[in-house]
């Protein structure tokens, strides 16, 4: 049986009414995650993006969550305060149906890591840079069901899984056999 454990959940609360549309969050994020740190800037690499339609007064900062490998069926529309949003606007996934939360060069998915750093940051950088206070960092204690201890996947395994996801098990197995044969030979 899974055991209930207390866990700190880190989130960014988003107050869309306070957003002034400046995209400083994107600037701070892409600078922080550049390598070396702060060496370059490019909002297209940011893990937080502003969904923006100024004339309709839509300003919605969204930060990246888990990647979705396939498009979902969600094409719903929400009208809030007379403004129309699509379901996708609220979605935090990098997904095949759109180009946000993907590295512009490689297309690899991006995910917010709350600016994990050593020493740790007090708050993620986007929150620090949002002087409009539309982004509010929150730590909540939540009870979560912790799955039973698993054997941690080794790095090789993670890599292989990604290959299988992309090319299919058969293709990977074939390639593996062919490569091992040629190496041995």
């Amino acid at each position: 049986m899974a055991e209930k454990k207390k866990k700190i959940v880190k989130t960014i609360k988003i107050d869309v009414d306070k957003c002034n549309g400046c995209r400083a969050c994107e600037v701070a994020c892409s600078a922080f995650h550049a390598a070396p740190k702060y060496s370059s800037n490019n909002p297209a690499r940011s893990r937080i993006r502003l969904i923006r339609d100024p004339l309709s007064d839509v300003y919605l900062p969204v930060y990246a969550g888990e990647e979705a490998k396939a498009e979902c069926m969600g094409r719903g529309k929400y009208v809030i305060d007379g403004k129309e949003y699509s379901e996708c606007d609220f979605c935090r996934s990098a997904c095949p149906s759109r180009d946000i939360f993907k590295e512009p060069d490689s297309g690899l998915p991006l995910k917010c890591d709350m600016c994990e750093d050593n020493p740790p940051n007090e708050k993620p950088l986007c929150v620090q840079w949002c002087l409009a206070e539309a982004l509010i960092y929150e730590e909540r204690e939540e009870e979560v069901e912790e799955p039973e201890e698993q054997v941690k996947a080794e790095e090789v395994e993670i890599g292989l899984e990604a290959m299988i996801d992309k090319f299919g098990l058969q293709k990977v197995m074939d390639t593996f056999s062919r490569m091992s044969a040629s190496k041995k030979g």
């Binding site: 600078a31 550049a34 060496s39 370059s40 490019n42 297209a44």
Partner: peptide, 9 residues
């Protein structure tokens, strides 16, 4: 969607 670099980050 390209980078702008700074010399002394």
């Amino acid at each position: 969607t390209k980078d702008i670099n700074v010399a002394r980050p």
